[in-house]
Design a protein around this nucleic acid. Sequence first.
DNA 1: TATGAATGAGTCTTCATTCAT
DNA 2: GATGAATGAAGACTCATTCAT
Lengths: 207, 207, 207, 207
Amino acid sequence: MKRARTDSAKDARRQRLMAAALDEFYERGFAAARMEDIAQRVNLSKGTLYLYFSSKDDLFRALIDTFAVPNLEQIEHMMSTAPSFSMALDAIAVFAPEMIKKSHLPKLLKVLAGDSHNFPDVVQSYRSNVIDRGLTAIAGLLKRADSEGEIQVDDPALVARLVIAPMVLSLLWQAVFDHTKGPAVDLAKLFQLHVRYMKRALGVEDA
Amino acid sequence: MKRARTDSAKDARRQRLMAAALDEFYERGFAAARMEDIAQRVNLSKGTLYLYFSSKDDLFRALIDTFAVPNLEQIEHMMSTAPSFSMALDAIAVFAPEMIKKSHLPKLLKVLAGDSHNFPDVVQSYRSNVIDRGLTAIAGLLKRADSEGEIQVDDPALVARLVIAPMVLSLLWQAVFDHTKGPAVDLAKLFQLHVRYMKRALGVEDA
Amino acid sequence: MKRARTDSAKDARRQRLMAAALDEFYERGFAAARMEDIAQRVNLSKGTLYLYFSSKDDLFRALIDTFAVPNLEQIEHMMSTAPSFSMALDAIAVFAPEMIKKSHLPKLLKVLAGDSHNFPDVVQSYRSNVIDRGLTAIAGLLKRADSEGEIQVDDPALVARLVIAPMVLSLLWQAVFDHTKGPAVDLAKLFQLHVRYMKRALGVEDA
Amino acid sequence: MKRARTDSAKDARRQRLMAAALDEFYERGFAAARMEDIAQRVNLSKGTLYLYFSSKDDLFRALIDTFAVPNLEQIEHMMSTAPSFSMALDAIAVFAPEMIKKSHLPKLLKVLAGDSHNFPDVVQSYRSNVIDRGLTAIAGLLKRADSEGEIQVDDPALVARLVIAPMVLSLLWQAVFDHTKGPAVDLAKLFQLHVRYMKRALGVEDA
DNA sequence: TATGAATGAGTCTTCATTCAT
DNA sequence: GATGAATGAAGACTCATTCAT
C-alpha cells in the first residue's frame, strides 16, 4: 500500500481504520474480530494497523470516542436552538430516521452493548459523556418549555427517556434485526406518530 | 459431582448449566466466555458440560430458546385476556419493571444483541417467535380496542412499537448501564408515566 | 501422549519438561527458544506444556530454582564435614570435574548469564541463595582452618573466590567452548594442579 | 541526522553503532534487542543502520570481531615484553581490575556466552583468535620462565588457565552480578592476592 | 545518504473439543 | 455419567527487513 507520509494522510488512514474496525466489530463482535481482517478492509497489513493503534483494546476505545460525540453534538445543538418544544420534536422526527439509517450509531450501540462488560471504563465514559449529556439536553428543553408555559412536566428526566425510547428501540432494531426477514418498519412514519403522541400527551397543539 | 440418573435430575442440570452460561455470556460475551467457567459455576467439569450440550454454539442456541419464550407467553396472555386496553396498559406498568429487574430478559437481550451476527438463524427465530409475536399480540389488543371504540388507531403495528419502546430502552439500560455511576431510574414511575401518556395520546380517560 | 494422572506422574513430567527447557534455552537462548520445541522434546504438545507452567517466564524461573540448589547443597555439605582444609580441597578436586561434566550447572550458568538482564529478580535470588551461600561455605571452611592453625588467611572471602575461580572458568568453558575445535582440557589434572597450588600458597603440606 | 560523507566519518559512525549494539545486546540479549533501539542510541534511524550493517547477525559479528582483539593484543604485548615472570604477574594484577571495570570485555563475554550457540562460527573464531592466542601467550611466558629457571612448570597450558581463572570469574561477575545487592569485591586486592599465591605456588620469591 | 512507513513471518498463549480412565 | 489431561487450531502482537521518497 502507498505510504501515508503527511500528517493529514495519516489522520485519514486512522479514520478509515476505525471505520473498518467498527464494521468488523459490528459484524463479528469484538472478541471474534480479527485485526488482520480489519487491516485488510483498508488494504493494509496487520503490522501497519499497529502503527496506528497499539492494541485491539486501544482501537476499540479510539473508535468509540471518535464516533460517539458528533451525533450527540447535533442533538444538543437541536435542543438548545429550538424556538419551541413543538418544533424541537418536529426536528427529531426528521433527524432520527436519518441518523438511524445513515450514521454509525446503530453499529456503535451494538458493539458497545455487546462488549460493555469488557470495557467498563468505556461504558462509563460513554454514559457520562454521551447518554447523560443527551438526556440532559432534552430535559433542559422540557424544563424551558415548562417554564415558558408551553407544556407542563413534572419530571423532565423521565419524560426525556420517553422521548428517547423509540430512538433506542429503532437503533437496536436496525443493528440487530434489520437484515432479518419480516415486515420492515417505516421509520419516518414511526417518528411522526411518536412526536404526535408526545405532543398530545404533553398538551401541545399540533401545528 | 454426584451423577444425575433420573431424567428430571438431568433436566435440572441442563437448566442450571444454561443459567450459568447466560451469566457467563452476559458478563464476558459469547466469544470470551470459557466453557470451563460455565461448568465450574455449577460445580461440574468441562467434560460433563459436553454431555449436555454438544458445543458452545449448541449451548447458546439452547439457552436463547429456553429463556426467551416464558416472558413472551406472559405478555401474550396479558394482552389477550385484558378486559380493556386501559387495563392492559396498567398491567404493563406493573409487569414491565418487575420483568426488567428480575427476569433473564436484560441479559438475554444483551447477549443476543452482542453476538447476533454470529448466529443469524437464532436471531431470525428470535425475531419471528418472540418479537414479532409480542408485537402482534399488542397490535391485536390495539385493533380490538379500536374496533370496540375504546381508542382510535390507524397503524396498530407502529403504535405497538411505541408501547414497547420504553421497555426495550430499559432492558438495554439495565443490561449495559445499570452498574455504572450516575442517577438511577425509577422504573415504576417511568412506566406509570409512559402509560399515562399513551392513554392521553390515544384518548383513553385515565382511571 | 499418555496422561499423567497421579501426582507423582505429574511431578515427573514437570521435571522432564524443565530438563527439556534447560536444553532448549541452552541451545538457543531464552528468547529464541520455542515453547513448542520444548514440549516436543518430551513428546508433548504446546498446550500441555501450559498445563505445567503458566508462561515461558514461569518455566524459566522454575527451572533455575529447581536445578540450582542441589549442587550447592553438595558443596555446603562437603565444606562443613571436611575433617581438614587439605581434605576439603582434595574433595573439590574430585568433585569439580564430575560436576562440570555431568551436572546441569554449565548449562544453567550459560542460560542464567545470557538472559540475566531480563530476569533481574532471578539473578538476585541466584546470587543470594546459591553463589553467596557457596562462597560463604568455603570462607567458613577457611576460617575454621585458620583458627585451628592449619593455614593462615587474612581475607577468607577473597580466597574463597580464588578457590572457586577455576570452577567458574571451566563451567563457562564447558558451556561455551567445549564443542569447538581445539585442544581439550583435562579437568582432573587442572583441578589437581589447582589444589596443589592452593595448598602450597596457603602453606599446607601436601598429603 | 547529518550525513556522513567522508570515509572517516563513516567509520566513526560504524564504531558508534557497534558500541550502541553492544550495550543493547548486553542489556537485552541478542534476540530481544531491537535494531531500532540500537539506531536510536546514536540518533539514527533504523534504515540508516542497514546502510552500515546488512543484518542483525552481521552487526553482531562485526562487533565481536572489533572489540575482541584490542585487549588481547595488550595482553600478548605484556606477556612477550615482560622482563620476568614475576613482573608479568605484577602487571596483570594492575591491568586486570582496570580491564574488568573499564573495557568492553565483560559485556562482550556475556553477549558472546549468551548467544554462543546461535553463532558457532563466531564462537569458534573467538576461541581460536582470542582465547587460545591469549592462553598461548601466557603459556609461552611460563615456558620461558621455566627454561630460564625462574620457576618450574610441568604443564604450562594448564597453569595458564589457572592464571586466567580469576579474570574470567571477575569478568562474569561484573557482567552478571555486579548490579545486584550484596558485598562488592575489591578487584585490586583480589588480583594482588591471586598474584601472591601464584608466585608462592610456583616458587617465585615475592618482590 | 537518511528516513520511517509498510510488510509478514514467527511465537506466545488461549481454549473448545476429545477421550482414556 | 463424570473427570480433567491432552491436543492443536487460531489470533494478538513484535520486529527484522525493505524501499519509496
